[in-house]
Write a protein that binds this DNA or RNA. Structure first.
Lengths: 347, 347
DNA sequence: TTGAAAGCGCTAACAA
DNA sequence: TTGTTAGCGCTTTCAA
C-alpha cells in the first residue's frame, strides 16, 4: 500500500529524492538515503508494477499460449516445459502470462491481443507448424519471440529444436539391426513441423537400407493414446502387417501397445514399438518403451533464456540451437530385456 | 502503437471526448462518435493495458503458483487444471499469471511478491495443506482467492473440493465386496490435506466392516510412479502381504502395478490395485486401472468462475462446493473384466 | 544534494 | 456536446 509519495511525506523530502535514494544514486546524502531506506522498509514499500510498466513502456512479461486440442488436455509435455520456462523466468525477473487456446484460426487473436494491449514483451512458441501464422505475424511486426521448433518460410527467427532427422535415423538403425524390414509409422497432422520432419527423417534413413514405408503403413493420429490405438488397429488389420511400429510420440505408442496386446501380440517379440518423447511412464510401463529422449525442461529453460537475452538487447551467441536427442533402448523392441520380462510375467 | 492522444489530434477533439466516444457514452455527438470510431479502427487502436491498470488500480489478472517437486515435473493434473482456469479466465476477460515454485518455505514469497507489487487481483490455490501458510497469509491480509481443496484452520475461505471420504468409502465397499480383507494403502505426505482425508476416509470406511489397516501396510510416497513402485515393494515384501493396494493417486498406482508384475503377480487376480485421479492412461493401461474420477477441467473452470465473481464483488451463491467423485471400475481389481483380459493376453 | 515539472496513457469530476 | 484539470505511481530532465 505504500507509495513513494507516502515515504516522501514521512521523510520530509520530495518524491524525486526518495526515488533516487531507493535506487542507490550517489547524489543523495547518506543520511537521507539511510532514512529513506528505513522508512521504506518500515512501510513495506514495493514499487507499483503498473506504474513502472506504464513509465518504461515494457512489461517484463513473457507470453505463452498453450495450444490445446480439447478440454481433456493432459499432454505431460506442457507441465515440464512450463516448469522450465517458469523457473527460469522467475530467476531472471520475468513474469509468464499463460493462456490456452485451441489450435485454429483465431488462435492468432490471442497473440495480437497481447501485443496490441502491451501485455507482454515477447512470446515463447511451441508446436510450430510448417506454415505458421504466428511466426509470420510476429516476424512481420518485428515482435520478439523464441520458438521450440523450426518452421518453413524465410524468417530467420530464434529457436531451439531437436534434431528430428537424427533421431529417426537412430530408430531406423536400431530396428534394421534387429532385423525389421516391414516398418509402419504413426504420424501427427502434416501441418505440424515436427511430424513432418520425423516422417521424412524415417523415410530417408530407411532409404539408405533400401527400405521404404508403404503408404498403407503410414497413418496420421492426433497425438493421443486413443488415436494411437485406433491407427495401429488399421495397420495391424492389414493383410501383410509390419513387424515394427514407430510412433511420433509416446502417448500414441502406448495406444499401439494396447492395441497389440488386445489381440494377443507380445510386444518385443511379435511386434516392436518405438515412441518419441520419453515421458515418465515410458520408463515404468510394461513393457517399458524404447523411445527418444528430449530434455524438455532444459529446452524450456534455454528458450526462456534466449528470449530474455533478446529482450535485453543482448544478441545471443547462437540464435538457432539444434539439440541431439538420445535413443533410450528399453523393452518394447525386444532383444534380451524383453524375453526375460515375458517369462517373468507369464510364469 | 496508437493512443487516445493520436486519435484526438487526427479528429481535432480532446482526448476526453475521444475516450468517451469510444466507451459509448451518450454525451457525444453522433458525428463525433462515428468519426472517432472510424479513426480508431484505422489506426488499430487498443487501449494500453498498463495505463488502464494504473488508473483503476486493478489488474484483471489471476495468479496461479504451481507447486513443483523437482525439475522432472509432469503431473498431468496441472495441464488439465490449467486448461480449465485458462479458458475460463480468457472468457471472462482475465489474464493468468503463472509461476512455478518448489514446495517449501519460500513458496510464500512468490505470493507476497505478487500481492505487494500489485501484479494480481486474486489467486487460485491448489494442493492445499493441512496447515497452509498461503491460506493464512491471504486470509490475514484479506486478499481474494479460491482454492481447490480444504484446509485446517478457521478461515472461512472459498473453495471447491472433492469429497475424499466419500470416494474412499466407495473404494472400500468395492474391495470388501470382492472379498478383500488385507488392504494396504500408499499415501502422500501427511501435510497434504487430500492425503490425510483419503487415508482417514479409507480407515473409517473399513472400520464399518470391522477391518483396519495395520501400520506396516500404510506407506507414504511422493506421488510419483517411481515412489509407488518403491513403497509397494516394501508392502509386498511383508511376510503377510495384502490382497489389495490402494494408492492415493494414479501415478503411484502404476508404480504398484509395475512392482507386482515384476514379481510375477497377476493384477486383478493375485493383487487388486486402485488409484485416484483417473488420468488419461488409467483407461488405456494394461490392465486398465480402477480409480476415482474427478472432473479436473470442470473444477478448474469452477474455481476460476468463483474467483472472478468475488473479484467483481458479486458474492457467489455457494462459497464452498464439495463435489462427489465417481468410482470407475476397470480391470485392476479383478472380477469379470480381468479374467477375460488375462486369457486374451496370455493366449 | 535536492526539488519542480513533465510525461507515460488513461479516466473522471467539474466547468463551460 | 465538449474541454480543462487532476490524478493513478513512477522516472527523468533540468534547474537551483
Amino acid at each position: 500500500m505504500a507509495t513513494l509519495k507516502e515515504i516522501a511525506e514521512k521523510v520530509g523530502k520530495s518524491v524525486t529524492t526518495v526515488s533516487r535514494a531507493l535506487h542507490g544514486y550517489d547524489d543523495v546524502s547518506p543520511e537521507t538515503r539511510l532514512l529513506v531506506n528505513q522508512v521504506a522498509e518500515d512501510l513495506g514499500y514495493t514499487p507499483n508494477i503498473n506504474a513502472l510498466r506504464l513509465q518504461k513502456q515494457s512489461t517484463d512479461t513473457i507470453g505463452f499460449v498453450i495450444p490445446t486440442y480439447g478440454p481433456r488436455f493432459t499432454d505431460p509435455f506442457f507441465t515440464e516445459f512450463l516448469a522450465g520456462i517458469g523457473n527460469t523466468a522467475t530467476r531472471l525477473g520475468y513474469d509468464i502470462l499463460v493462456s490456452t487456446h485451441p489450435i485454429g484460426d483465431e488462435e492468432l487473436f490471442s497473440y495480437q491481443n497481447k501485443v496490441n494491449s502491451y501485455r507482454v514483451d515477447g512470446f515463447i512458441l511451441v508446436r510450430t507448424r510448417r506454415d505458421d501464422a504466428r511466426i509470420k505475424y510476429l516476424c512481420n511486426i518485428n515482435f520478439p519471440f523464441v520458438a521450440f521448433g523450426r518452421s518453413e518460410g524465410e524468417c530467420p527467427y530464434a529457436f531451439v529444436d531437436v534434431d528430428n532427422r537424427y533421431a529417426m535415423k537412430m530408430i531406423a538403425d536400431h530396428l534394421v539391426k534387429l532385423g525389421h524390414q516391414r516398418i509402419a509409422y504413426i504420424s501427427a497432422p502434416d501441418y505440424l513441423m515436427f511430424a513432418n520432419e520425423r516422417l521424412e527423417g524415417l523415410q530417408e534413413a530407411l532409404h539408405e537400407y533400401e527400405l521404404s514405408i508403404p503408404d498403407a503403413m503410414i497413418r496420421v493420429g492426433n497425438l493421443t493414446q486413443m488415436s494411437g490405438l485406433e491407427q495401429s488397429e488399421v495397420i495391424l488389420n492389414h493383410p501383410d502387417p509390419p513387424t515394427a511400429i514407430v510412433s511420433c510420440n509416446d502417448l500414441m505408442a502406448f495406444g499401439v501397445i494396447r492395441a497389440a496386446q488386445k489381440r494377443g501380440l507380445v510386444i518385443g517379440k511379435d511386434l516392436a514399438v518405438v515412441g518419441y518423447d520419453d515421458i515418465p511412464q515410458a520408463e515404468h510401463s510394461i513393457p517399458s518403451l524404447t523411445t527418444i529422449h528430449q530434455p524438455i525442461y532444459k529446452i524450456g529453460s534455454t528458450v526462456c533464456e534466449m528470449l530474455v537475452q533478446i529482450l535485453r538487447g543482448e544478441e545471443p551467441e547462437v540464435r538457432q540451437k539444434v539439440i541431439k536427442p538420445t535413443l533410450i533402448i528399453r523393452e518394447s523392441c525386444g532383444g534380451h530385456p524383453v524375453s526375460v520380462l515375458v517369462k517373468e510375467v507369464n510364469s
